[in-house]
Design a binder for these strands. Structure first.
Length: 249
DNA sequence: GTCCGGTACT
DNA sequence: AGTACCGGAC
């Protein structure tokens, strides 16, 4: 499954003009970047941005950095997590931060090591590799799956996302902004390529999107629609008849 | 009431 | 491959 256009370039151009200002989108050189990214990624697992925002800010007030968070206990962190749900995330976050504390608050730089941290699966490991080390990898969450499957006009169950990334390296990792690109893809998926009523007409890649192109083709004049309906009814009746005959056998 | 979503576990 | 975990959206 191949794409024949520079997805990265297009999505980044959109992102630069349309991204939301979010508190964890801090400068790459900011010394708290790891903490902000880690905290937000744990909170954003199964939870929307607007729900996460107040919790994220409350955490920062109580624990301004990784070190202070690493020194708290489960009871305190669970209290602060109250209402966010999936409480195992809070426990895992604390365990992970305590592990990082033993590593001088450095994140390991391999997928395998990062994924071995409690509460970190495929998605978060790839997200952190991109966000912290600008690595050429894609964090595939629900948004990204939807974007790719619309571009290819295939069900996401029919796509091997690992292979898709491998086969399209040139159109995904063409510059040195992979951290931004990983973020941009998800942002694009949640704002433009939404599950319901995607904004296809203002989408910057609609010319290259097989879903949009086939949707356009399917637009029919009234008479075409009428004809089609007739045909469909005939097919249906025919099928019914055939079924009846088959049952009799 | 039903669907949705990363991770961990089965 | 299937399911529990949880709260929000619809």
């Amino acid at each position: 499954m191949h794409i024949d256009f520079n997805l990265s370039k297009n999505i980044l151009a959109w992102y630069d003009n349309n991204k939301r200002i979010l508190p964890w989108r801090v400068n790459k050189n900011y010394d708290q970047r790891l903490y902000y990214r880690l905290l937000s990624e744990f909170m954003l697992q199964q939870t929307q941005v607007k729900t996460v925002l107040p919790y994220f800010n409350r955490f920062l007030q109580k624990f301004p950095n990784l070190k202070s968070l690493s020194k708290t206990d489960e009871k305190t962190i669970l209290k602060l997590w109250e209402g966010l749900g999936y409480y195992r995330r809070a426990k895992n976050l604390l365990s992970t931060v305590k592990i990082l504390a033993n590593n001088n608050f450095k994140l390991p730089d391999t997928f395998k090591e990062i994924k071995s941290l409690p509460g970190v699966g495929d998605y978060t490991a790839n997200a952190l590799l991109a966000f912290i080390y600008n690595k050429e990898t894609i964090a595939v969450d629900g948004n990204v799956k939807r974007v790719f499957s619309r571009i290819l006009n295939k069900k996401d169950t029919e796509i091997n996302f690992e292979n898709f990334v491998k086969n399209n390296k040139n159109n995904l990792f063409f510059n040195n902004r992979n951290s931004d690109f990983v973020e941009a893809l998800m942002e694009f998926g949640s704002i433009v390529c939404k599950p319901q009523q995607p904004l296809c007409y203002s989408c910057v890649i609609n010319k290259k999107c097989k879903y949009f192109q086939s949707k356009k083709k399917r637009k029919k004049t009234k008479s075409q629609t009428k004809k089609l309906r007739k045909i469909n009814i005939l097919c249906y009746l025919n099928k019914k008849k055939t079924n009846r005959i088959n049952k009799k056998k």
